[in-house]
């Protein structure tokens, strides 16, 4: 990670800062940023994935001197960016299938290696469905072979493109089209799901990181670092979905921030299977603050709040905080 630049007016949290030297500014602050995902895409208002993708790919473009090729899984990002006859991508980009993106990227990397194009780098990207579920086999294969691919998962915690169905990244209690808030255990059940970042770490690959759209500088630093390495790398970016979560379109970044500040989404990075750094919680919030603005959790509140369920979610947050040490020496 880059050295933290402390700057008091807006600290290190805003996108840019007119008072910082050029080299310390974020990629997104640059007037010449590539806008790899260009205007005119058909993502919903306030789409976290569109934002996360531009953040990540612009950073990767910057780090690779614009020598970048991307493979993209089927999903929102693919559908809203490339409906015939228009594409929003400014970079060489391929969409093959839902479940094979990591393998397609492996193929691209192999082709570049054979052609001696070591300067051209490969990114694979997909949503949580394409990553944690249907694409998981290919992803694990790519990790295991340590192929020279940076895989970026944009996690919005369900299959949004097809009408909000549960994925293995859907959190407990969340309402989706396949986990309706009915019956004795409304919403998604507890005790299921998986953490692909931790599974990625178990492959012993050079770099695994999590990030959110609420902390651009952290995200960019992680992409930049990942791009400086070779081999299989994985970045899992938390991208709120106004449509699927039933949240206001202007709350996208706020929700990502609350997920982090509540401890529900731990932000960390790991090298060769070992956690190397953790983004500390700055102003801790109870999970209710994160859950309440989302209609997918509406059944937990209202006239008869599901205190016990909320307490179980809080326990998950508390466990994360303990496990990753999210509270020590708060940073500013």
């Amino acid at each position: 990670m880059d050295q933290t630049v402390k700057f008091y007016q807006t600290g290190t949290f805003t996108v840019g800062n007119r008072l910082l030297s050029e080299e310390n500014r974020s990629v997104q602050a640059n007037m010449q940023r590539t806008n790899s995902l260009n205007s005119g895409h058909r993502a919903c208002q306030g789409c976290g994935e569109a934002l996360g993708a531009r953040y990540a790919i612009d950073a990767a473009m910057n780090a690779s001197n614009n020598q970048l090729i991307a493979a993209n899984a089927t999903g929102c990002l693919e559908v809203f960016s490339t409906p015939y006859p228009e594409t929003s991508w400014q970079i060489p980009w391929i969409h093959s299938l839902f479940g094979n993106t990591a393998a397609v990227a492996t193929g691209i990397a192999a082709a570049l290696k054979v052609k001696g194009r070591r300067d051209v780098r490969v990114v694979a990207q997909g949503g949580d469905g394409g990553t944690t579920d249907i694409g998981f086999g290919c992803l694990s294969g790519m990790f295991e072979r340590n192929d020279d691919v940076l895989y970026i998962c944009y996690d919005n915690e369900a299959y949004m493109n097809t009408g909000v169905q549960r994925s293995s990244a859907t959190p407990p209690a969340a309402r989706t089209a396949t986990t309706m808030p009915v019956g004795p255990e409304p919403g998604n059940v507890f005790g299921q799901g998986k953490s692909v970042p931790l599974i990625a770490m178990a492959h012993g690959i050079p770099y695994v990181a999590t990030a959110t759209v609420a902390d651009l500088r952290d995200l960019e630093a992680k992409v930049k670092h990942a791009m400086s390495l070779n081999g299989a790398r994985y970045i899992h970016i938390f991208v709120p979905c106004p449509l699927g979560w039933g949240a206001a379109s202007h709350d996208t970044i706020r929700l990502a921030r609350l997920a982090r500040e509540s401890g529900l989404f731990p932000v960390f990075e790991a090298e060769f299977g070992e956690v190397k750094s953790v983004s500390k919680i700055r102003h801790r919030v109870p999970v209710e603050e994160y859950l309440k603005p989302q209609r997918r959790f509406a059944h937990l509140f209202g006239k008869n709040p599901a205190f016990e369920t909320i307490a179980r979610i809080q326990a998950t947050a508390d466990r994360n905080i303990r496990k990753f040490g999210l509270l020590e020496e708060a940073v500013s």
């Binding site: 974020s26 602050a29 007037m31 995902l37």
Partner: peptide, 20 residues
Amino acid sequence: FECDNCYGVCPDNAVIKLGP
């Protein structure tokens, strides 16, 4: 105060940065 936040956070790149 030109913190670039609007320029950065727009998912649609619909903010034009006019320069210092």
